[in-house]
Design a protein around this nucleic acid. Sequence first.
DNA 1: AATATAGTCTATAGAACTAATAGACTATAT
DNA 2: ATATAGTCTATTAGTTCTATAGACTATATT
Lengths: 146, 146
Amino acid sequence: MISKKVKYAIIALVKLAREYNKGPILIRDIAESEKIPQKFLETILSDLKHAGILASKKGKGGGYYLLKSPDEVNLATIIRLFDGAIALLPCVTYQYYERCEECKDEETCGIREVFKEVRDETVELLKAATLSEIIRRESKLEKKKR
Amino acid sequence: MISKKVKYAIIALVKLAREYNKGPILIRDIAESEKIPQKFLETILSDLKHAGILASKKGKGGGYYLLKSPDEVNLATIIRLFDGAIALLPCVTYQYYERCEECKDEETCGIREVFKEVRDETVELLKAATLSEIIRRESKLEKKKR
DNA sequence: AATATAGTCTATAGAACTAATAGACTATAT
DNA sequence: ATATAGTCTATTAGTTCTATAGACTATATT
C-alpha cells in the first residue's frame, strides 16, 4: 500500500495539473476541494517543492503551482519521493538496495527473480502514468459514463 | 515492501517444497539453515498451518511439512495471508476494499485506473510464482552460472 | 511604512504496526 | 516414564505513519 502522503500528493498534483499555467493556487483551496488535512498538505507540498516539482509564491495572490510540465511528472517519481523503493524486496531495488541477510546466493535466488519481474512491470506502468495521462484517462472515463 | 514475516514464510516454504514428501522437518532445522529467528518462525509456520498450507507432527520424528503440493502454493496467497492486500490502494483491492474518503467519483478516477492496472499485472505474476516455479528458476539460474 | 496574506520551519504526539522474545503448556513416539 | 517437539498467550521495544501546533518569514498592496 502507498502511504496517505503519496495519495494526497498525487491528488494535489493532479489538481494543480488541471490548473496548469493558471497561476498559483492556495494550499487552503486544494485542502478544501480535495478534502486533505491542510497542515498535512503543507508539509507534502513543501516536499514537492524541494524536489523541484512545484514552486510557490508568498503573499497575496500567492500559492503553489507546477514547475514541471504535467507530462514530465509521473507516479513512480512521487512514490519514490515519499515512500522510497517501489520494489517489494530490498534486494531488488535500484536506489535503496540492501542485501538480504539470510540469502545464500543472490545470483541464483528464484524468489528474487520473481520480485524483479514484478518491480519491472510496476515501474513501467507507474512511469507511464504522468499527470497528463491521468487527466486524459479521467476525461475518457467521464465520456464513457455519459 | 513485503514484511519480514512474508519473506521468512516464502523462504521456509521453498525449503519445505524442496523436501516435499520426505517427512516432517524440524522448526529448528529450518530456522538454522535459513537463518530465521526460531521463535518468530514458530508463529509463521503456525499461521501457515491454520491456513491449510502446512501440517505438523508433534513428538519425536515430528516437524512441519507441506500439506498442499508445491505447485498449488503461490506467492499471491502468501502475501495476502500475512500482509493483506497486494494492491497499492484500498479502493483497488478485491478482498480488502475500502472507499477513499476524499474520492469524488470512483468510476471516473484516473488514479484508480492506473493502480488497478498495476494490481492486475502484479497479481498475475505472483500467482504464476508457485513454489515449484521458484525451485525451477533456481535450478535454471544455477545451470546458467556454471 | 503598515498590514493582511500566505508559505516555512521545528517540534511534538498519539496510534498503529513490526519484529521478536519469554515461558508455560500440550501432544506424541519410543 | 521421558524426551521430543509443536502450541498458545502475553508482552515489549522500536519504528513508522498521520496529523497538529505554533512561531516565524516573505510578499503584495494600500
